[in-house]
Structure formats: C-alpha cells, structure tokens
Amino acid sequence: MVTVAPADGGRRSRRGFLYQDAVTLLDCLDMLDGLWTAVSWEDLEDILCHRGDAPAYRQVKTVEGADKRHSIADVCRADQTKKPENRTAATSYLGKLFLGKLFLGKPLPEEARFTLIVNEVPATDLYQFVCVRGLDPQPVTGASRDKVLERLAELTFPDGRDLAWCVDRLDVLVTARTVEQVEQEAFQRLYPYVRDYLGQEPLVPEVDEVLKSLVSVHIARSAAKHTSRRHTADDFRGILEDCIRKSTGQRRDGTTERLMTLTDKLRPAGIPQAEAERQHESMLSFRQARRRSVGMSRERYDALSDKIYAICQITTARRRMGLIQPGQPAYAATLEGILKMPEVESGQVELSDALAILSDVTARCQNRYEDAS
C-alpha cells in the first residue's frame, strides 16, 4: 500500500517518462510472446530490445494533441534548444538515434534495427517507415528514403557504417496517443497471465495493481538506476509472477502467501508466533472476502482499508516524532486508534474484521512499528 518512489540521483529524471515506461511494458510482454530474447531500458536509447545478438534501438518521441504529427522534417531537424553553432543534424531525433550507438561503441551487426516510437500517426512522408508491432519491417525505398538521406547528409559515421545503412534499418512504430490508452492495452495483455497464474478469473483491481507495480516500481525504478539491467524472458516472467503474488496474496501452486512477511512486521510489536499465525489467517480471510465482493460491498472494504491505513500513518508519524515509542507501544497505539473508530464503537463494523484489515495493511507496508536500522 506504500508507493515507492524511484531512487534519487538516478541517471535521469522520471518526470515525463510515464508514457515511455508503459511502452516498455508492452515490449516486455512482446518478449514473453517470443518476439525478443531480452529487453533493457537506458538513458541514451529509451528501450533496447534484443533478438539473439541483434539489437533493436528504440526511442519514444511523443507529441501532444491530435493535430500534431511527426514528419521527416521534424525528426531530421536540429535541436533548436542548442546554441546556434551546435544545431547540427547530429542533434536531431534521427541523428541521435543513429549516431549515439556508433560513437559509444554499441554493437551494430547487420541485423540491427532503429525504431522511432510515436504516439500519433505520422505525416505521409514519414508514414512510409511505419511498421506493425511483431512483424519484420522491410527497407523503405523511394522519395521518403531520399528525403532522409538529403536532410541528414552532413552526418559522418565511424566504423564503416554510413547514413544509408542506418536508414535502411529504420522503422516507425505507432502506439496509442495517451499513457492511459497504452496502459489499457497492457491491461488486456496482462489479464490472461494473471488468470493463468491464479487458475481463475482475476478481479479488475488485481490486474490494475499488477500493472501499476510493473510500470511504476519495476520499470521506473530500474530506469532511474545508474546502470541498466538486461532482462530475459525468464527474468521478466519472475518479476511478473512476483507482482501477481504480492497483489493477490496467492502463489501459483494455489497456496497462500507465506507468513514470513507479516511475521517480520509483527515481531517488533512483540507478537508471539502463534498469534502472528492467527493474524495471518484473518488477513487471508479478509483478502478472500474482498476478492469475492463487488459493488457497495467492495467500496465498504476499500473505505475501511483507507481509514485503517490512515490510522497507521498517524501512529507512524507520532512514533517518528518521538511521541510514541517503537515496538509494542506503537502497536498498542494503532489498536487504540482502531477501537475508537466510529464504525467499530457503534458495532457497525466487527472488531475482528477491522483487525483483519489491519493485518492486511501491516503486511503490505514497510516498517510499520519500527524503522529499519
């Protein structure tokens, strides 16, 4: 229930990269479908996909508004934010896409690809380079290819490569216009994975939670680190299953989530093992009841969870201010806050139900009754 922000001081700011992170998830799902053998995401090339030893360097360039479309002139135009003397073809979208790999010694075998990912159907000239996700594109010939060669003619290439070699390996992939639409596509593709893992139809909020965890935690946090990690299909499948397990409380074999997490959270509060096991069972009962609930019943569970989470936050804040001692006093203060809830005092909510929700909140949060040393 705690959203973990990306690491501070990473190699790039995450502001404005939500769309790119969602597109990265689609590439990872393509990898699970066998299109790629590995996927990583870096600062210099937004996404790097591999098919065996052949890399596909992919950059995401979005535009705002349906009336704005990329053209060959746009993607070949020098960066206007640079000083006049530095406004060269090398600073254009395609210039950086092509040259950034060569001058940094990135591998460029014959099968390498360069992909520009855009969120609007491009203008007619650039549209000639549009490909379909999952299909092998063919080299573009004719006027559009000639126009790119003419506009970027000043580029010079090391290692025996030239501009024509790069342009013949260029394609444009059109994705949905907004991050919400990209995430909806990812949701539809994630749904069967969650269903197969659980062995039953998942709830919409569970798939949403898995998607949020993959995009905002795993992909965003990985992109914020100083070095990138190359993810294979097995790596990402493990990450996906871990997200499903944490979001649903169930493991692939049908057993429930291990007690260890909740036990660790309760140990500073002085809770004996036997009592921790009972709380664990209560937590599972609550999660199962919530999974079955719909409509007003689901809203009631969610509202109670929000209120109990707020009580936990207040207790944590007071503990960190030195007003409450960590461990058992912090746990006792949390219980007192729940006992004073109007719903509990009036009998509208059973105390046992409220405590089961507390166990669920405790299991999902970090350092509830004391901070890590």
Score class of each variant (00 low, 15 high):
198 L>G: 06
199 G>V: 07
199 G>I: 08
200 Q>K: 14
201 E>T: 12
201 E>P: 00
202 P>N: 10
203 L>V: 07
204 V>T: 13
205 P>F: 07
206 E>M: 07
206 E>T: 07
208 D>R: 09
209 E>T: 08
210 V>D: 07
210 V>Y: 02
210 V>F: 01
210 V>W: 02
212 K>H: 13
212 K>Y: 08
212 K>D: 12
213 S>L: 05
213 S>D: 09
214 L>V: 04
215 V>W: 04
215 V>L: 03
215 V>Y: 05
216 S>E: 13
216 S>Q: 13
217 V>L: 12
217 V>H: 14
218 H>V: 04
218 H>R: 10
219 I>S: 03
220 A>T: 13
220 A>D: 14
221 R>M: 07
221 R>I: 05
221 R>Y: 02
222 S>V: 02
223 A>S: 15
224 A>T: 07
224 A>Q: 10
224 A>C: 02
224 A>M: 03
225 K>M: 13
226 H>S: 13
226 H>M: 13
226 H>L: 15
227 T>H: 07
227 T>G: 01
227 T>R: 11
228 S>F: 08
229 R>Q: 13
229 R>S: 13
229 R>W: 03
229 R>E: 15
229 R>Y: 10
230 R>A: 03
230 R>F: 05
230 R>Y: 10
231 H>S: 12
234 D>H: 12
234 D>M: 14
234 D>K: 15
235 D>L: 01
235 D>P: 01
236 F>G: 03
237 R>S: 11
237 R>K: 10
239 I>K: 08
239 I>V: 14
240 L>K: 01
240 L>G: 03
241 E>K: 02
241 E>N: 04
242 D>Q: 13
242 D>G: 06
242 D>H: 05
243 C>G: 05
244 I>C: 08
244 I>V: 15
246 K>P: 00
247 S>N: 05
247 S>A: 15
248 T>V: 09
248 T>Y: 09
250 Q>H: 03
250 Q>D: 09
250 Q>W: 04
251 R>Y: 00
251 R>I: 12
251 R>G: 14
252 R>A: 14
253 D>V: 10
254 G>I: 07
255 T>E: 15
256 T>Q: 07
256 T>R: 14
256 T>P: 01
257 E>D: 07
258 R>A: 12
258 R>F: 00
259 L>P: 00
260 M>Q: 10
260 M>I: 09
260 M>N: 11
262 L>M: 08
262 L>W: 02
263 T>W: 09
263 T>P: 01
263 T>I: 04
263 T>G: 10
264 D>Y: 02
264 D>V: 09
265 K>P: 01
265 K>W: 00
267 R>Q: 10
267 R>H: 06
267 R>E: 06
267 R>V: 05
268 P>C: 04
269 A>V: 06
270 G>R: 09
274 A>S: 08
274 A>R: 10
275 E>W: 09
275 E>T: 14
276 A>W: 00
276 A>K: 06
276 A>D: 04
276 A>G: 14
277 E>K: 07
277 E>Q: 08
278 R>M: 11
278 R>G: 03
278 R>D: 12
278 R>L: 13
279 Q>M: 15
279 Q>Y: 00
280 H>W: 09
280 H>M: 09
280 H>K: 02
280 H>P: 04
281 E>A: 15
281 E>T: 12
281 E>R: 15
281 E>M: 12
